[in-house]
Design a protein around this nucleic acid. Sequence first.
DNA 1: GTGTCGGCTGTAGGCCGACAA
DNA 2: TTGTCGGCCTACAGCCGACAC
Lengths: 414, 414
Amino acid sequence: MEVVAGDKKVQNTTLWLECAGPLVTLPVVGSYVAYFPQGHSEQVAASTQKEADMQFPSYPNLPPQLICQLYNITLHADQETDEVYAQMTLQPVTGEKDQSLMSNLGIQTKEPTISFSKILTASDTSTHGGFSIPRRAADKVFPPLDYTKQPPAQEIVARDLHNNEWHFRHIFRGQPRRHLLTTGWSIFVSSKRLQAGDTVLFMRDQNGHLLLGIRCAKRQQTAIPSSLLSSDSMFIGVLAAAAHAAATNSRFTIFYNPRASPSEFVIPLVKYNKAVFHTQISVGMRFRMELETEDSSTRRYIGTITGIGDLDPIRWPNSYWRSLKVGWDESTAGQRQRRVSLWEIEPLSSPFIVCHSSSLLLRSKRPRLPQGLGQTLSSEEVLESPMKQSSLWGRGEEGTTDIQNLNLQGLGLE
Amino acid sequence: MEVVAGDKKVQNTTLWLECAGPLVTLPVVGSYVAYFPQGHSEQVAASTQKEADMQFPSYPNLPPQLICQLYNITLHADQETDEVYAQMTLQPVTGEKDQSLMSNLGIQTKEPTISFSKILTASDTSTHGGFSIPRRAADKVFPPLDYTKQPPAQEIVARDLHNNEWHFRHIFRGQPRRHLLTTGWSIFVSSKRLQAGDTVLFMRDQNGHLLLGIRCAKRQQTAIPSSLLSSDSMFIGVLAAAAHAAATNSRFTIFYNPRASPSEFVIPLVKYNKAVFHTQISVGMRFRMELETEDSSTRRYIGTITGIGDLDPIRWPNSYWRSLKVGWDESTAGQRQRRVSLWEIEPLSSPFIVCHSSSLLLRSKRPRLPQGLGQTLSSEEVLESPMKQSSLWGRGEEGTTDIQNLNLQGLGLE
DNA sequence: GTGTCGGCTGTAGGCCGACAA
DNA sequence: TTGTCGGCCTACAGCCGACAC
């Protein structure tokens, strides 16, 4: 994988992931994924601040989810705002291919990184002073200072996603003593147009080099009328591109913007299958779901499933996208999603629910189910045919694959 | 018509037109236009810096030009860059409508404005000083100074497209004396992020109020990878939206960006008809064409038609879009288009070319001509059948036609 | 007529510890 | 431990005419 910034290419995959947020995972090249046009449309809606309100053409051959192989992925950062996004090229898969490769978990293993992030205060961003480094952060990621010097100080060099160097004076002073970035900081703030509430991020890579990234506060995401394409054309473009790719079995390219998109819409097939075919869901069931907190860490919230049904029965009947209506335990849940997808939650298992009951529950609530993988198998068939299931999942969890098998042209039928 | 800046609405239509450039014309609401998907794609290509290279779905029912009625138009300016663009909603027309409206020339009459523009110099944009006002410009658009005061000076207030007020100190000083904008100028420069080479524009409206706008140098237009939609999806979105609108006879919305688009792609139908059906064109013919100059005025260039034929014979056979290959008289013509459309040029009529000779010339060079309005009549038929021509155009030269004849499905062979 | 420069001046950018949350 | 402030100093933003093209 490579990181592309504008036209230049750099290698800071881990920095990209840090900027994308703690919950973002990326599928690996060659793995199988489920692509959701609905989720893609939501990203467009969130970016254009506009719902899809026009009369769209219907694409009867475009299912709510398209099973694809990830042909390519490149990581990017907006040249101006440093906003991160990924470009993925997807190859729709037909029903007849060998599906053994699908056992691959299909996500990047996130190596643990030495990093810290801080939400900028008014003092941090004002022109009056510098940046106050949290104590633990300085100890953890910055090179140790020589405390015998008076005052202890050093020059810090860090690179951003575009591989630009930023120089800062790191000093330990004041009464009581604290770590500060002074000279060079205000240039960085004005160049990136940082404001109080935005997040800055420092990390150390394997070679001990410092990297830094930024994450703009959510409000900043607003107001991109784009001036290039009407939102109608964008919605239609998303659907038409997917429909055409599905119909002609050809590759198509999408952009995934982890900070703008309400949810991931390219899901590893293993994760999707596990959630859809191997998890019992019913109204009243309680679950956990991991969400990003204000300070860029994660927290598990508890909720209850209050309903199961189509988010958009007209355009997308029988879709698993946000098919669960949920309520949240905590009263501060105002901003949390009221609809989630199966693969986002972790059911709080109860010993009273046995496995086979799920299909009954599902079927009773949703008489016609999405086809899932199913250009070939319907969900009912999958759920009711252990043989077929095991043939799908029988090759083990380790996920080693031969790259040759990743070329779809070269994929034999065995 | 209204100008929409971000979400707010203001009324500076003339300012918008000044910023758009001297050659830009806008159709009026209710008038009939020809919309060219090819031209729209070119705007996307220019904005994304990418050609359409993927395998596009074919839209067999989408002709190279779509005859529409302009249902609505709103003028906009990018909140950050002040880049101007127009949002147009187009209603494809069916054969049964009353066509009396088509006699309307269909473009905004551009009222003469008191204005001046200046390409910013290094001194204008440096933090070291202010803005040097050209002498004639100061006399023409700014309120007269009281030269009895020492020094003569006044406060200038001007509004931009977003209706924001900008305050400047206008002073007449130095040896030799000259007009300058000092206090307030540098704030304007840094706010709009102006650089040497960009253009600033002052004008006075009917009430004597000052307005100002900016036009970024061309180079600035580069590098908008958009991060939201792949260029493939954009191209496909443009085509799919138009095809769907044509098939279902429903309105669709497009954005026209006059500074980014190589050519206008929504052409008043009268202008289109006149050029396509009432102008004799042949290889070797000489023509004039008006183009924008470096300093935002216009100039006529002379050229010769060197060929006639499809720009893209595969995707857009029989299209009038850029169907003329041309050469330019002046050697400095490197950056000028090598292909233009019929309605962009003004043939230099020669008394030796008589009317009917044109069809012979046309036929010899272009065995298969674009069908123009015609899915039913070939160009040859039109050209060779004076009766049919006169039946289409028999109501005089002003271009009144029966809309029934314009609908391709509804066009009888008589 | 106007682009760029050197000279001068004042404001705000930016480093410091004090102090309090 | 760290956010904000007043004090202080200096860099540069910004106003001026000189000068040249």
